[in-house]
Design a protein around this nucleic acid. Structure first.
Lengths: 201, 201
DNA sequence: CTTTTTTCTTATCTTTTGTTAACGTTCGTT
DNA sequence: AACGAACGTTAACAAAAGATAAGAAAAAAG
């Protein structure tokens, strides 16, 4: 009988091929270290204060990353399907993280634990490709972050929201507005006012 | 006679060893592709609209990264000595960049061109170590960006300034306040008011 | 040392945002 | 179907930030 992970590995391999092409030998070693995780809406992938122990790839679903400040949640990031998700600083340094990652809808993730990643980085068959994999994931994220920080430095909240509407409409679909508000660096009330201003013209 | 770059390579190698240890053979191939650049205060390392053609390591000095919006400069990032600097998205994708990088004081940089990096990534002697080098640089930057985005999402300008005072006093030394203001996502006038509030208690 | 330029502060006014609370709606649960 | 919880909008007030201009202070240039 085919297991859940076996069912989804071909899809995942195809996604991986967009970044790094593994030959069959490399892939077999790599795939042995992967796990699959089905999470239900509102389940957590990692929590503030925990060490983030794995890197995830969202086969289907979506997640948000948030911080907890004075008991309040501040959403800082979203990931939709076909993207990697992780509390990176916590994962990379294996230290307690400042972010929680929560699933926004029932989701299916491929995961790679930090221990497995270390082994793959040391394994002669996979070491080279894994270094490249790590490099490309990190570089991709840097490109996202550069845009994000630039938006905070050069735009006001209304402009940031308008840009999001234009460039990232897919995010707006599934995601409650009060999460979006934090993402834009404002309160839900303020976002509601901005929406009124934009749409009533 | 010793050239300028020969004089500074040992220092640079020592800094590199903190990330990736090159053996002598690897180092020799690597070092052949490096250049050195002496920039005077206000000189530019790269400009908005240009493709960023090189990665830099600041041996001495400091730089700021800024964007140009409606003819106005908005400073988004600083780097002090012993750090790598680059308009990463532009460099990685070799596309026109959205950032200018300007030297804040007379500075000395080791540079590696994108072409050289590609060659080193393909060169059998250096490929593996260069992948790792690229990964570690990118991962380091991600950690910085995570903190920076979290600051925007979870703190107000006053809290961001206070945190900077506490955690990054070194940045405050050399850098004019109006640059800092953009970095914090506010105007210079507003930063001045925040300073008054904080220091007069 | 003087002049010029840059940087920082202060003041005023306007706009925007934060805060709190109320209200209606939607959604999921029982 | 009824209930409660979560969500979005709106209102009113307070607090903070933006814009602009003027003046003081500091740094750079001559």
């Amino acid at each position: 009988m085919e297991t859940l992970i076996e069912k989804h590995l071909p899809d995942f391999r195809q996604q991986m091929n967009k970044m790094v092409i593994f030959n069959d030998e490399e892939w077999n070693v790599f795939a042995k270290h992967l796990n699959i995780k089905a999470l239900h809406k509102k389940d957590h992938f990692t929590r503030v204060g925990e060490v983030c122990k794995e890197l995830g790839f969202i086969l289907s679903g979506s997640v948000r990353l948030y911080h907890v400040i004075n008991g309040e949640e501040k959403t800082g990031y979203f990931c939709l399907d076909k993207e990697f998700i992780c509390s990176y600083k916590s994962f990379l340094k294996q230290e307690p993280g400042l972010s929680s990652i929560q699933v926004l809808e029932d989701s299916l993730l491929i995961t790679l634990s930090h221990i497995a990643l270390r082994q793959l980085l040391d394994h002669p068959v996979t070491a080279y490709k894994m270094e490249r994999f790590g490099r490309l994931i990190a570089e991709q994220l840097i490109c996202c972050y550069e845009d994000r920080v630039q938006a905070f430095v050069t735009q006001n909240p209304e402009e940031r929201y308008a840009a999001l509407l234009k460039n990232n409409p897919r995010i707006l679909q599934h995601i409650p507005q009060h999460f979006l508000a934090n993402y834009l660096g404002i309160t839900p009330v303020s976002l509601s006012r901005i929406r009124k201003r934009i749409f009533q013209t």
